[in-house]
């Protein structure tokens, strides 16, 4: 395996009632890169996310993850919250905002190890008030970047589809993680918002060295920021390379257009 990888997916397979959703997929995500994952519908992109984040364990293969100290650990079959705690954050393709929480509260959920989340500390306000104020500031600044301050105290049911999608992604970005798995973050966003989101992702990547794995159907936009692209087709890896190589790969074109 490469030394600069943060996540190594090694020959991972997943079956659903005999149907092969993933077959022997091997992918390496280099650290501090923006990696795109594309492929036609039903090619196993979301299944791969689900396997990485522990929604279900893979039937075969291993998933290795490099911790901060530079050691690779086996995270195959860990529970979703344990994967999250290791610094891998995912967003959902179909947004799963919490309907009875305001937008602000939805954003405040993510940061890990909040003081006020333990039963004992939640009873003593002085323990968590300061941290809460900082988090509110962080959330407000994030919303300000996208000119969405006016929706801070709205409920998800009052938002437009694009805003829901945006908040789903921003919720992931609320807390510093090392690897983000974004499932179609640009779907449903207008071009202006989509570009601001891409700019934010690019900034986080360049300034803070965060790694992104992005599933996206708007390939043109993705190509603008991605360093490397993997193409999945029918559950197996079809091609990989830099955006330039992928665009010119006849196999990829065939998979998308159909044979």
């Amino acid at each position: 395996m490469k030394e600069d990888a943060i996540l190594v997916i090694n020959e991972v397979s997943k079956y659903f009632e005999g149907l092969k959703a993933l077959s022997k997929v091997t992918i390496e995500i280099p650290e501090k890169c923006i990696v795109g994952l594309i492929g036609p519908n039903g090619s196993g992109k979301t299944t791969l996310f689900n396997v990485i984040t522990g929604f279900y364990p893979p039937d075969e293969g291993k998933i290795l993850y490099k911790t901060l100290s530079g050691i690779f650990v086996d995270i195959t079959g860990l529970n979703p919250h344990e994967v999250f705690k290791m610094g891998v954050i995912r967003t959902f393709q179909i947004p799963r905002l919490f309907p009875s929480l305001t937008v602000l509260e939805n954003l405040l959920i993510t940061p890990l190890n909040q003081r006020g989340e333990s039963v004992v500390n939640s009873l003593r306000r002085s323990k968590w008030l300061r941290e809460e104020e900082e988090l509110v500031h962080r959330a407000v600044n994030l919303l300000k970047t996208f000119n969405r301050l006016n929706i801070a105290s709205k409920y998800p049911s009052e938002l437009s589809i694009g805003d829901i999608k945006l908040i789903e992604t921003l919720r992931g970005l609320m807390t510093p993680a090392r690897l983000y798995l974004l499932d179609e973050p640009l779907a449903g966003l207008d071009l202006h918002t989509a570009r601001s989101l891409l700019r934010l992702i690019w900034k986080l990547n360049k300034n803070h060295g965060l790694t992104f794995l992005i599933v996206e159907h708007r390939v043109d936009l993705l190509m603008e920021i991605a360093d490397f692209i993997y193409v999945l087709h029918n559950g197996s890896l079809l091609a990989s390379g830099t955006p330039g190589e992928i665009i010119n790969d006849p196999k990829v074109v065939r998979a998308y257009i159909g044979e």
Binding site: R96, F98, I109, L112
Partner: peptide, 15 residues
């Protein structure tokens, strides 16, 4: 309250 609304999403957010 988040868990009440959607426990799966809460699990994926590290809870």
């Amino acid at each position: 309250r988040a868990i009440r609304d959607d426990d799966v999403a809460a699990l994926f957010l590290g809870k």
